[in-house]
Design a binder for these strands. Structure first.
Length: 323
DNA sequence: TGCCCATGGTAAT
DNA sequence: TTACCCTGGGCAG
């Protein structure tokens, strides 16, 4: 369930484990017949813009994926169990994960002479479990598309969009997206120019992917609180200084998200507080999903309202919202 | 077990 | 503005 940071991490997984390899595409669920169009071709590039993922194949066409609310990728890599535990953990280290310990029982397959391969699953937070099942593993759940190489597999479940698109169509799709801080060097100026053309409240503008790509409902609420900004203020009434600060805050939060895999939006934490926040989602945010709970700054109960068809959380006192 | 909810977006009305 | 898609986790009963 990603906002922009997750999709950049997914693109990174494909860059590390799939780019340069011939990929076998299939649709275990049977709902993606176009998998055959890319089956047997090499992946040459992966990249993300906002919440959109593009996997470019040597045919010139791309797989375009948008996860929506429910979508998820499940990655697994094949590792020779003859490798030591530290070697296995080292491989995962490349993904930013926490490493893995290979238990002695994992060697059991060796007793029957089977290839000593194991499976390293990389989940939402790159947490890793080591399983002794054969590679590739059986698909779990409703897998729309499976991308398989000799050493890695990626399963996609529940996406809003999963389609094969031409290079020209990729250009069209990108043209419809606002700036992404990790893609656009001139993103701040593009953000300002697009915000100033909209008459909607800033709480809506931040969710508009044509204005800024990658922000979702969590980051929206948190960015607005961090700026102590009233979500109902007209976006084009805000000063350049305020808008630039919003952009810079988003850039920083996105980088933290890509690095940690989690939307950690409370800063100024001690090391132990940070560990607690990473372990417990309830300690991770200023206002998101904290309706009726006391504001962490002023103790006013956090309010929830519907904006842009989504729940918007804010502190009426800190953010100056008059009831 | 079944219902509700969710970090999104599009098509229909 | 509303309906709908899609999947899995959490929780009440």
């Amino acid at each position: 369930m990603p906002e922009g940071h997750s999709v950049h991490r997914i693109a990174g997984q494909f860059a590390r484990h799939f780019v340069g390899n011939v990929c076998h595409l299939s649709s275990p669920q049977g709902r993606f017949g176009d998998a055959v169009l890319l089956d047997g071709h090499a992946l040459v590039r992966s990249f993300a813009v906002g919440k959109h993922l593009f996997l470019v194949f040597d045919t010139g066409d791309s797989l375009h994926v948008h996860l929506g609310i429910y979508g998820a990728w499940d990655f697994a890599v094949s590792v020779q169990l003859d490798d030591t535990a530290s070697t296995a953990a080292g491989r995962i280290g490349q993904t930013g994960g926490r490493g893995a310990v290979v238990g002695a029982h994992e060697d059991s397959l060796a007793s029957i002479g089977a290839p000593r391969r194991t499976r390293l699953r990389m989940g939402e937070h790159d947490s890793v479990s080591v399983e002794s099942s054969a590679f590739p593993p059986e698909p779990i759940g409703q897998v729309r598309v499976r991308i398989l190489t000799n050493d890695a597999v990626a399963d996609l479940r529940g996406p809003t969009v999963c389609e094969v698109v031409s290079a020209e169509r990729v250009v069209e799709l990108l043209a419809g997206l606002g700036p992404d801080p990790l893609v656009d060097r001139n993103g701040e100026e593009r953000f300002l120019s697009r915000v100033k053309r909209t008459g909607t409240p800033i709480g809506r503008a931040l969710m508009n992917q044509k204005i800024v790509a990658g922000i979702g409902n969590v980051y929206r609420a948190e960015i607005l609180f961090r700026a102590r900004l009233n979500p109902y203020l007209g976006a084009n009434t805000l000063s350049d200084e305020t808008l630039r600060a919003l952009w810079k805050d988003w850039v920083g939060l996105l980088k933290i998200g890509v690095k940690t895999g989690q939307m950690l939006t409370i800063d100024g934490l001690t090391a132990s507080q940070k560990r607690a926040a990473l372990a417990n989602r309830d300690d991770r945010h200023w206002v998101y999903r904290r309706a009726s709970e006391p504001c962490r700054i002023c103790a006013t109960p956090i309010v929830v309202d519907i904006m842009e068809s989504r729940k918007l959380y804010f502190c009426p006192t800190c953010q100056g919202v008059i009831a």
